[in-house]
Amino acid sequence: MISLKEVEKVYRTEEIETLALSGINLEIDEGEFVSVMGPSGSGKSTLLNVIGLLDEPSKGSVLLAGETIQGLPDRDQARIRNQQVGFIFQTFHLISDLNVIDNVEIPLLYRHLASFERRSLALRALERVGLASRVRHFPSQLSGGQQQRVAIARAIVGQPRVLLADEPTGNLDSQMGEEIMKILMGLNEDEKTTIVMVTHDARLAEKTERIVRLFDGRQVN
């Protein structure tokens, strides 16, 4: 499903050059649930950004469902992000001026779908994460755990094949973290969604099928 070959990512400024990823070779099968672990600054989020087309690798190739994705025009990259990938962030990234259902609908705005169709898909996604009763609430009226569930609903509303979760439980207490993990595992098992999750929590990582460890931008296992 996901294939990285000799991927390198260098961030350059006028003064310094930072090697964020180096020589990454990674194969993730369809339906696999993989954790990425490593200390801060080891390149975990960069790896996720490269897989999710949020960032271009400096070297190497990235294939998603057999298709080379780097170097594609902006419009094609946007289409792949919209249709193949769902993102979950540590800080939720909900738009505070939109209510729950409007937040969940956002990915569908970039597809040619009728309003009622968007609404129906968004409601289904919210039901999947157990928040169907909170559709008119604004993010500020929800707890951290509920906000992350909204973010998961937004990530799955377009039925992507890959979910990229960047420390999805990092801002939550352990109980809420468990709840989020349960939802992710359910999605992996029921929908066969491929999940790549960055985490610092070894306990959660152990629940996944495989752990990829990074250190100073290099794969260490």
């Binding site: 902006d74 946007a78 249709q83 970039y110």
Partner: peptide, 16 residues
Amino acid sequence: TSEIGLRRALGAHARS
């Protein structure tokens, strides 16, 4: 900016 980044991540291209 952060919201714009989010929209780009969720499938918005530069023109949209």
